[in-house]
Amino acid sequence: MKAVMCHEYGPPSALRVENVPEPRPGPGQLLLRVEACGVNFPDTLIIEGKYQQKPPMPFIPGGEVCGVVTALGEGVGGPAPGTRVAAVITHGGFAEAVAVDAAKAVPVPEGVAPEDAAALGLAYGTVLHALEDRGALKPGETLLVLGAAGGVGMAAIQIGKILGARVIAAASTAEKLEACRAAGADDLLDYAQEGWRDRLRAMCGGEGPDVIFDPVGGPYSEPALRSIGWRGRFLVVGFAAGEIPRIPLNLALLKNCAITGVFYGAFTRREPERNRALLTRLFAWVAEGRLRPAISRRFPLDAAAEALETLASRRATGKLVLLTHPTVPPAG
């Protein structure tokens, strides 16, 4: 089978597409014929050795997959071969086949395209876990999304609206902000411009947002936290800007607010049943037409390095997806 291989830590250009043996499913695992795999910011970190988990070399990156079950490992009763499933994994998805733990596989409803299912796992799973489980976002509250034009940011806009929030999207260019408007944002905030905190305060009627979703970090986190509303919830999701900010804790005291961590990968491992229920809800929203993953570009497997470079250089708007078998008909 073809797979994207990482033999040493480095930039996306160091990756190679190679022919490797197809994996065999171990006890408790399923073998999937991969149809699509989402491209995510953690993929850019894991190939450079900057992620929390470091697979042994060589390894195949790719953390969210959709594919058709082709074989069952020992002790696995289902889903049956021919069933389309999606799974969130640490690595292994940038390939034509992958073995995944059966406990992580969630059946994909009829009518949900493989690329949509592959785009949901990490970004949309992270967002729903963050906004509901960690941020307790309520209908009518105001949600500020930093880095709103990225894949996770777009997901936060969409799910924030489904949960009944007013969404303020913050991004750094007019083009990115227009994409956020198209995704459903109620208000737009250019945080590359001077005085953005004053504009945010005016948008919030002199108060601040109830919930702040921050996948960016860097120079934006502290001023955003200083702008949060009374009893607000600041969600620490990631550090796409590259710098982990050092926050003065007196800010949490002054606003009586909560600074809450969101580690979706650990959630999926520690609470697999809750995660399966979460993903099932997301798939149902797509099947019902309430949610459409914001996929901006689709790449063939051979162009995985280009997809990762596009993401790492912050040129991506919305989600990027690799298609390994773009002509495969729906399973059924």
Rank of each mutant, 00 (worst) to 15 (best):
A179W: 11
T44M: 06
N250D: 13
A174V: 11
G73D: 07
K176R: 15
R233H: 11
R231Y: 13
S296W: 02
A185N: 09
T173S: 15
R33K: 15
A103W: 09
L254G: 02
G77L: 12
G164L: 04
A156Q: 07
T317D: 00
E18T: 10
A305T: 01
G73Y: 04
R199S: 08
V145W: 10
E110C: 07
V17G: 00
P55H: 05
Q29H: 13
E207S: 15
R269H: 13
A136M: 10
V20I: 15
R166N: 14
D190S: 13
A304M: 01
L146N: 14
E178G: 01
G151H: 07
A105I: 06
P329S: 11
N40W: 01
A136P: 01
V108E: 11
A294T: 04
I159F: 01
N40M: 03
N40F: 01
G93N: 04
A36D: 03
A316D: 06
C66P: 00
F213P: 13
M203V: 06
A86E: 08
V85W: 03
P272M: 02
S221H: 09
A331Q: 07
H325Q: 14
L323C: 10
A277R: 15
V211D: 10
R315A: 12
A155Y: 02
G28T: 09
E288H: 05
L253Q: 12
V237N: 13
I47D: 07
A99W: 01
P272C: 02
T268P: 06
D302P: 02
Y124A: 11
Y124S: 09
T260I: 12
T310A: 11
E48F: 00
G67E: 08
P25F: 10
